[in-house]
């Protein structure tokens, strides 16, 4: 009886349950890595604890990082196990693997787990967003209102090519090129633009809101202790976009009052001109502005 020529090429029978091994390794790695990520890595993820909203964002990042860790562990274990166990050794014939078969239990488990995770994260993210707006611009009619939003201290952020300035409606519309905020206070930021589309990004405060001409984009932030934070434009807005940044400060209320008094005094000289009607070259306080004058513009 002639020998079957394919018999020599057939893969050796393997009774090892690779799936159990992978799952076991994954569970062990996840059990170690997930708490480490949640406890030690999560709190380091930006933007930090500069404001209540920033703290909320950091917590959200912490939760999401904790959820994604087991997924990453599964990928890493699967990849590593495959490389170690199934790679072809030098001078070894390349053999085809066993045929893949459908397993409805695995499919169902995969769909259930991934769907649950995605829906939970979507729900969690929506809850966090609606709780207080999460520092994001909500347009002129915000729906995610923080508690006591009626008493929020208003500050207007005005973007233009290429600088931010700030107006304080409760200080007579005083304008300054410095952003100074009182500590431990809910602040409502009215973000707008005088020309192109910009984006106001107060990084450590966890605030980011688009600045569009003719639009009042509202964002809420609750400051904490005194700090210095970075302000950047996050929308490509022309030649000096990379230079459109400065620092803002959060200071104690008494220090804020002293600064405000000084800034109001400086502003007094230009105030009469600013308060003139728009067609006379003024720009009295409003929640949005249009790109005027356009005298020489096309």
């Amino acid at each position: 009886m002639a020998a079957n020529p394919d018999a020599a090429q057939a893969p050796p029978s393997d009774s090892t349950n690779h799936g159990v091994r992978v799952v076991a390794a994954w569970l062990v790695l996840s059990a170690i890595a997930t708490p480490l990520v949640a406890i030690y890595v999560g709190p380091l993820i930006p933007p930090g604890n500069g404001s209540v909203q920033a703290q909320g964002q950091t917590f959200s990042n912490q939760v999401m990082a904790s959820f994604v860790t087991p997924v990453l562990c599964l990928m890493a274990v699967f990849f590593a196990y495959g490389l170690i166990k199934f790679h072809t050794r030098r001078n070894e014939a390349v053999l085809d693997g066993p045929p893949l078969r459908n397993d409805s239990r695995v499919q169902l488990l995969w769909i259930v787990i991934t769907t649950t995770m995605v829906l939970f994260l979507a729900g969690f993210g929506t809850y966090e967003l609606l709780k207080d707006g999460a520092g994001g611009g909500q347009g002129p009619n915000p729906i995610a209102l923080p508690a006591h939003h009626q008493t929020a201290y208003p500050v207007q952020v005005i973007a233009q090519q290429w600088q931010f300035t700030y107006r304080y409606p409760s200080l007579g519309g005083m304008e300054s090129n410095q952003l100074v905020l009182p500590a431990d206070r809910l602040v409502v930021l009215h973000v707008t633009s005088l020309d192109a589309v910009h984006s106001f990004w107060a990084y450590q405060l966890g605030v980011k809101a688009d600045a569009n001409p003719g639009v009042d984009n509202v964002a809420y932030v609750t400051t904490k202790g005194p700090m210095v934070f970075n302000v950047r434009c996050a929308e490509l807005c022309g030649l000096w976009h990379p230079y459109m940044f400065n620092n803002g400060t959060v200071v104690p209320q008494a220090q804020f009052n002293r600064w405000a008094a000084h800034a109001v005094a400086l502003y007094a000289s230009i105030k009469p001109y600013v308060n003139r009607p728009t067609d006379k070259g003024g720009a009295p306080f409003a929640y949005s502005y249009l790109p005027e004058p356009t005298r020489r513009a096309g």
Partner: peptide, 27 residues
Amino acid sequence: RWQCFVPCAAGWIFGFGGPMQTIGYMD
């Protein structure tokens, strides 16, 4: 960097194109 803030570029949208966006003119 230094710049002009007046929208003085005649013929450009909102007066801020061309020479306002080119180093060697108004920046």
